[in-house]
C-alpha cells in the first residue's frame, strides 16, 4: 500500500487489509482531523484499504 502523507511524502506499507480509521490512528492522526482518499476517491473511516491501494491522507487546515 502506498500512503501519501499530508506533507506530500510517501511510504509503502503492508498493513492492509485494514480500516481507514485504524490506519490513520496507526500513523498518528486523529480521524476527525483528516480526510482520506483511496485510489483518488474519498472514503469513510470504516472503509477498508488493501495493500494494492494508494491512500492519500489530507489534513484539514484550521481557519478560513
Amino acid at each position: 500500500m502506498k500512503i501519501i502523507l499530508p506533507d506530500k511524502t510517501s511510504r509503502e506499507t503492508k498493513a492492509g487489509p485494514v480500516t481507514v480509521e485504524a490506519l490513520v490512528r496507526d500513523l498518528g492522526f486523529d480521524p476527525i482531523e483528516v480526510i482520506v482518499a483511496r485510489n483518488g476517491t474519498l472514503v469513510t473511516e470504516d472503509a477498508v484499504v488493501e495493500n494494492t491501494d494508494e491512500v492519500r491522507i489530507i489534513r484539514i487546515a484550521h481557519g478560513g
Binding site: I32, E33, I35, A37, L42, I58, I60, A61, H62, G63, G64
Partner: peptide, 24 residues
C-alpha cells in the same frame, strides 16, 4: 463541522491545500 466542509470542497474539486495562520 469543519470536516464536513472539507469533504464538501473536496467533492466539488474546490479543495486547496492552503497554509494555516502562523499565529494560530
Amino acid at each position: 463541522s469543519e470536516k464536513e466542509i472539507a469533504v464538501y470542497l473536496m467533492l466539488h474539486g474546490a479543495w486547496a491545500d492552503l497554509p494555516e495562520c502562523p499565529y494560530a
